[in-house]
Each structure stands twice: as C-alpha cells, then as structure tokens.
C-alpha cells in the first residue's frame, strides 16, 4: 500500500522527470527536425521556427550522393575511432595493470608525474607535435595514421579509472595462481583480464567517442589536405567559414549520422560503462 504522502511524492517526481526529459530532448528533437528541412525549398541556414515547412531527405541525400567527400570523411573518422579505441584500451589497461598489481621503484613518481602531465594545456604543444609528426611524414596525406599515433601514444596517462578497477580485485587471487606456477603474464591474460570486462569495455567506449569531436588538432594535422579530413573538421567548416552558405541543415544531418554509431554502442554497452567506472564500489 502506498501512503498518501508517497503518492504525492511520486506525482511530483513524475512531473520533474517530464520537465527534465523535455529540456534534454528539446535540442535533440530540434536538430532532427532541422536535418529534415529541405534546403532546396527553404533557406538552408538557421531559421526562427522549429518545425520545417517542407520535410525532405535533401540534406541526407547531399551527404551520400557524392556531391561532397562526406562518406570518405566518415570512413576516416570510423577508422581513426576504431584504431584509437583498440590502441588506447591495450595501452591504458597495461599501464593500469602494472601500476595496480606491481610495486617497483619509481612507481609513485610515474603515477604523480602522469597525473600532472595531463594538465598541460594541449594547444601549446600542438605546433611542436605537428612538426614531430611532419618529420615522420604523418601529416597531410599521412594525417590519419598520425592522428591514431598521437591519440594512442599518450593514453597511458589516463590509467586512473582502470587502475581503480584493478585495485578492487583481491591480490589473494594472484598469490594462489603463483603458487600453482603461473607466470605474471599468464595471471594477467588468463585470470585478471577476463574478470575485467566492464572496465575494458568502458575504456574502449570512451576512447571510441573522442575522435568524433576532434576538429582542432585534426585540421591542424590534415593541413588543408581534404582527403584526410574527419567528420568534425567538415562540420566546423560548414558553419564557421563564409564559403559554405546555407549548410546548416546538412550540418544537422551529418551530426545525426555521427550520433548513430555512438548511440548504438551506448545502448548496448551502458551497463559496462556504469560498472567500469564504479567498479570499486561494486566489489567494495
């Protein structure tokens, strides 16, 4: 039986939830509606009304009809995101594992330095990174491997969440396995990693989402070579440069298309995302 007080409380809670949902969905719905506005029959720029007068797929057709290099840019981003995701997962899991399971000289030093290094503002080093990559031939036409390399190389510094997760797996498991004669590598690959599926998926998911939003460093590295662009550079150009008039509906459509893989992944992996980041609590 529900008390009267509880009923009122629930009613209030529903009202708040509906308001919250409205606020959160409003921009999303707005973007979807804009993306279906015909840029041929109405202005393609921003407009002062929400619901289009002519619904059409014009913007989506533009993206994939070969008028622009969008499919190429989309593939570029997908490749970058997949590679970065795989690379970052391997590297940051290795680092977190080493820092969590082993005690060796210099460990504290590494942990603190990396924590602090992550705070150095990225733009400063952008020009230096550009020239480092240029020496290696990884700019312009080689920008995609270059972006992957930079994305993966420094990922060791973000060991934080995974280390927290590994910290919660009892050391007694390792000790038992060592008595049975397992090497430390075997313990990692055969015992601890299978237990750590949530944090591995969490790391991969977060890393996968990053490259879709990188428009500054990516355009710096691509340096005017349009075949190496990613989606975010194109999106930025469409709304921030004067050369593209009336691209706003196409911009919205591209944003929706980008949202698709991330949404799908999130739908299926939400559980791991939560468990990954809160792993410490689950076991504690």
């Amino acid at each position: 039986m529900m008390s009267r007080k509880q009923k009122i409380g629930n009613a209030l809670a529903y009202i708040v939830l509906v308001i919250i949902s409205f606020i959160w969905l409003f921009p999303f719905v707005g973007l979807v509606l804009q993306s279906f506005r015909s840029y041929k029959l109405e202005p393609g720029g921003m407009v002062g009304y929400l619901v289009p007068k002519h619904f059409s797929l014009d913007s989506y057709i533009y993206l994939f009809s070969g008028e622009s290099q969008f499919p190429k840019w989309y593939m570029n981003t997908m490749i970058i995101a997949l590679c970065v995701s795989a690379g970052v997962t391997v590297i940051s899991i290795c680092v977190a594992y080493a820092l969590s399971r082993f005690r060796f000289p210099g460990r504290q030093f590494l942990m603190k330095t990396w924590l602090v290094l992550g705070m150095f503002p990225g733009f400063l080093t952008m020009i230096c990174l550009y020239f480092l990559l240029k020496i290696m031939g990884l700019t312009q036409a080689g920008a995609i491997p270059g972006l992957i390399l930079v994305g993966v190389a420094s990922s060791g510094m973000s060991y934080y969440v995974s280390k927290g997760y590994f910290d919660t797996i009892p050391l007694s498991l390792d000790e038992a396995a060592r008595i049975d004669g397992a090497s430390r590598a075997q313990i990692m690959f055969h015992m601890i990693l299978p237990l750590s599926k949530p944090v591995i998926i969490y790391t991969a998911l977060v890393a996968f989402m990053g490259p879709w939003c990188d428009y500054i460093f990516a355009s710096y590295i691509a340096f005017g070579h349009s075949a190496s662009y990613n989606v975010a550079i194109a999106l930025r150009n469409w709304v921030w440069t004067n050369d593209y008039q009336g691209f706003f509906t196409r911009f919205c459509a591209a944003g929706i298309i980008v949202a698709v893989p991330v949404t799908v992944l999130f739908m299926f992996l939400q559980k791991y995302y939560v468990e990954g980041i809160t792993g410490g609590a689950v076991k504690g």
């Binding site: 590297i91 940051s92 290795c94 680092v95 594992y97 080493a98 399971r101 082993f102 060796f104 590494l110 990396w114 290094l117 150095f120 400063l124 080093t125 230096c128 990174l129 480092l132 390399l149 930079v150 993966v152 190389a153 420094s154 990922s155 060791g156 510094m157 090497s183 430390r184 590598a185 990692m188």
Partner: peptide, 20 residues
C-alpha cells in the same frame, strides 16, 4: 613483467607528451 608492459606507454608519453 611490469617493466615489459610499461615500456611502450612510457616511450609514447615521452615522445608525444614530454618532449613537446
């Protein structure tokens, strides 16, 4: 083993974060 799995991450951070 710790040193083995830390080598590449440490090198990566050194070249692409510390040097810049």
């Amino acid at each position: 083993f710790a040193q083995t799995i830390l080598t590449i991450p440490v090198l990566g951070i050194f070249v692409f974060t510390v040097i810049p």
